[in-house]
Design a binder for these strands. Sequence first.
DNA 1: GCGCAATTATCGCTTATAGG
DNA 2: CCTATAAGCGATAATTGCGC
Lengths: 203, 203
Amino acid sequence: MNLESSNITHTDYQSQRQPKKRNRPSFVCTNCKKKKIKCDRQKPCHNCVKAGISRYCEYPIPTLNHLFEESRDEQPSDASLKDEVNELKSEIMNLEKLLTSFQNKNDQQQHQMTLDLSNTAELFDKKLPSLKTFKVAMKPSRISFSGPLSLLTILNYNFNFRLFGSLAKFLDAERLAWKQLNGNPSYIQKLINADIKGDDLII
Amino acid sequence: MNLESSNITHTDYQSQRQPKKRNRPSFVCTNCKKKKIKCDRQKPCHNCVKAGISRYCEYPIPTLNHLFEESRDEQPSDASLKDEVNELKSEIMNLEKLLTSFQNKNDQQQHQMTLDLSNTAELFDKKLPSLKTFKVAMKPSRISFSGPLSLLTILNYNFNFRLFGSLAKFLDAERLAWKQLNGNPSYIQKLINADIKGDDLII
DNA sequence: GCGCAATTATCGCTTATAGG
DNA sequence: CCTATAAGCGATAATTGCGC
Ligand SMILES: [Zn+2]
Ligand SMILES: [Zn+2]
Ligand SMILES: [Zn+2]
Ligand SMILES: [Zn+2]
């Protein structure tokens, strides 16, 4: 305890400082985050599958959860009612397990950010201020289709790409198709020919 | 980069540390636990059934108890099974609700938007294809900050404004502030001066 | 019924990354 | 660059349940 008896005068310059909060969103599923284990960022992620809670593998950003709801296949199928009952029971068991991990009081510290991101508007509120100074250079060799306020840029810049693979792929396809169809439109040609400094803002 | 770093030699400090108690609830029935035999985690579990103590098969987690009541040996009818399924499902819904409340932690006043945005999937799945032909003219009189793939355009075009009022307002403010700060950047100036036909695509 | 090996899961603490 | 903080490793607490 006498370790800190050293010289640091504990003075104002550090103590009075307001803790500058940062906006650092989380991109792992809520369950893995909770358990502090490695999440592969799929939906559902590997850990949630293993735990039998794949239905509850979710990400803090609501918008994104829906993007990756793939086959919400109804499973009544040929399984007997009895089987379904058992399935539901085991699901409840797993849910219960999951719940207990959340009920654990041991960690009441730092989930402020997660909370904030549960709201989509909040997401944008937090992101956009940084985006407005985000810069994109348009290289003649490769047309960049996105400025700071484009969806793609937001995603590329802010989110893990693996997680958003399908959306990114879709956008790529869209743009490729568009190019095939339209070629380089006059507007883009002009833009490329103009000598734009790499640091110029592209809105 | 490989710092030997500070090596605090007083390990005795460590030993004095209070033994950290971990929260790890049990999920087997109390009888099996006591007997240290394998529990199938049903209600009642097979061990308790074999021992003729079915009605004393209980679980430390209360919810699991009353949920799994009733598993008589008699063959249940389809109707009753269906009832059970429904019951279980509704129970799952409750648990999910509970889980959500945990995940959101101090769910404060930020729920209004979240709910309304629930079908965001549609935004991307259905609306985006139409966007690729959506055209925005950039008028010299008024700088348009968004192309078809920009977030703002997507929002404006696809959603009713009432829903996104606050977001839209925010974006407006952002852009205004940006303009105040930067004026028209060279890039945009050039763009404006170029004779762009009103129908040119802006990506 | 129980010792204890095997297995599972928690959480303190470090590291990497990114916001500002 | 400085630091907040997300990610998640890994030590190890705890649970399970085999086999005596
Ligand atoms: Zn995960
Ligand atoms: Zn998951
Ligand atoms: Zn049992
Ligand atoms: Zn039992």
